[in-house]
Design a protein around this nucleic acid. Structure first.
Length: 275
DNA sequence: AGTGTATCCTGCAGGC
DNA sequence: TGCCTGCAGGATACAC
């Protein structure tokens, strides 16, 4: 589920609550969201202070002890982070808690995940830097230019939509925003990446940034599970032009939106507006 | 290298 | 009401 805009929305919400919290106790309810034994995970966190909340691709990055490592949370399809006991609005109860971090004073943060495709991992500073290097460029960073996108696209014959989903090539794009970006750029999701023309690459670069920025602006897209830290759904789903709209009229030309499946995922496009 | 497929897991919607 | 199938925002491992 959560793609860059949803992870960013969560990071912003958590940033106002969590920094300064000290992990007093970690309860692992479902160890299958960890990559190390639960005991090792717990000891790597106990006593450490969360000093900042950031985002890299679709991951939430909870920095520990002023940058001396990080707890990195990948939300998978249905993962949520639920702050509990903090002053402010009621935030609803976790329904499928997998890991709970207790901060003392009745405050805690719960990683809640119905399907448990999410994962939690603790890195030291060097380890996280290394992992982060394996992830592609952040599309919203000012230094990410269309020329870079164009160069990278030319190295692959994989369908454009699949290329956009590959976190090693570009960070944070998932199936919703990939399809929406292809639509806005007027390029079919099946087109080989290296066949994207220069003018299309320019349009695609703009489209990727637009859909992600609008997603953030509207608090993320909620199809079913996504909630922000206040337990509220996002508002971006109303703005989707093709994703999940099979058979519905294209907002631009009214031709029915088509759905095809490749790479094990649905792709949505307008057969008239996208070539 | 690239691509298609299966897998992890649960819930929900739709058809009968 | 119940049973069955298909589908879901992600990531990875595998065979070809």
């Amino acid at each position: 589920m959560p793609e860059l805009p949803e992870a960013e929305t969560l990071a912003r919400g958590l940033r106002t609550l969590i920094p300064g919290s000290v992990v007093r106790r970690t309860r692992v309810i479902h160890p299958d969201v960890l990559r190390v034994p639960a005991r090792r995970f717990r000891t790597s966190l106990t006593g450490r202070t969360v000093t900042a909340v950031g985002r890299r691709a679709k991951n939430l990055v909870l920095e520990l002890d002023g940058g001396d490592g990080a707890l990195v949370v990948n939300l998978g399809m249905t993962g949520r982070l639920v702050p509990m006991g903090f002053p402010g609005a009621d935030r609803g109860r976790p329904t499928h808690p997998a890991v709970r971090f207790a901060f003392g004073q009745g405050r805690s943060l719960v990683f809640d995940d119905v399907r448990r495709f999410g994962s939690l991992e603790v890195f030291d500073a060097a380890g996280w830097a290394e992992r982060s290097r394996q992830i592609g460029p952040e599309p919203l960073s000012p230094g990410y230019r269309w020329t870079r996108l164009r160069e990278d696209l030319q190295r692959s014959r994989t369908p454009l939509r699949n290329w956009l989903l590959d976190q090693r090539k570009i960070a944070g794009v998932g199936n919703i925003y990939a399809n929406e970006a292809c639509y806005r750029a007027g390029v079919r999701p099946h087109r080989p990446a290296c066949d994207v023309e220069e003018t299309e690459a320019r349009a695609l670069h703009r489209a990727i940034r637009e859909v992600l920025e609008e997603g953030i602006e509207h608090g993320g897209t909620t199809l079913r599970d996504y909630r922000n830290v206040d337990g509220e759904p996002g508002g971006n789903q109303r703005r989707l032009r093709v994703y999940g709209r099979e058979g519905a009229p294209c907002p631009s030309c009214a031709t029915p939106v088509e759905r095809t499946v490749f790479g094990n995922r649905s792709a949505f496009f307008c057969p008239r507006c996208q070539s």
